[in-house]
Amino acid sequence: MIQKILYNFKKYKFLLQQLVSRDFKVKYKRSVLGILWSLLNPILMMAVLAIVFTNIFKFSMPGVNYLVYLISGLVLFNYFSEASNLAMSSIVGNFTLINKVYIPKYIFPLSKCLFVGINFLLTLIPLYIVIIVTGTDLNIYHFLLPYAYICLFMFTLGMGLILATISVFLRDMFYIYGIIVMMWTYLTPIMYDISMIPAQFQTIFKLNPLYQFINFARSIILYGQMPTLGQWAGCGVSAVVVLIFGIYIFRKKQDKFIYYV
């Protein structure tokens, strides 16, 4: 079983590479700055946020720089919302291929999560610029951050597999999910802190896996603290559970895709 998975992975590694590089080529075709936009876009977005939130709204967060607080949450959340959206439409969008050639179907959601993942890594550069410019302390725990990123990736891939499966059978999902993501944005403590939520709801808010990942990253970036055991577990468990559930659903239904797309 594992041998078969490894063999398949080796065989289709090149296809995965090609699909990811295709996405980049298509995205920046005929644009003068090309791939620089992957860097420029988050920089400009962060500049706008900095102006809006620190000069106009005058938001603040006790003890930490609000801009760093906001951006560290936003970067993670944006990865999730963009990657899960693209992964959702990847099966329906690649129907012509699925209908003609045999390719393992999971490769499409996976390639989308990787593609957005590369963009995500590029947005870390402006994040660190903001961290340094605002004088937030850098610490040794930053080397633990990849754990949160990997958990986020696994969670997003799992969600992508689930969404891709549902959307094959129910196209309405594309519209429903747009609303879900919007609700999710406001229910995740990105712009505000979880302590502002009434105490009785806080537990429910903490069950949100995206809060777990963001919280893990923030305790390192903003507070310079080693994440607690609970934080480590919260990230790992939510990522693994959702990924396994996603793989299970996707595998169970993938042979039926061809009749519905």
Binding site: Q18, R22, K29, K100, V101
Partner: peptide, 28 residues
């Protein structure tokens, strides 16, 4: 399988890029 030729092409990419992409689709 030569069931429908060019199913793996991306119309926006050049012929050179498509040779690689389509080759990968066919498992090369």
């Amino acid at each position: 399988p030569m069931i429908e030729l060019g199913a793996g092409f991306d119309p926006q990419l050049t012929a050179r890029e498509n040779i690689y992409l389509n080759g990968a689709v066919l498992g090369y």
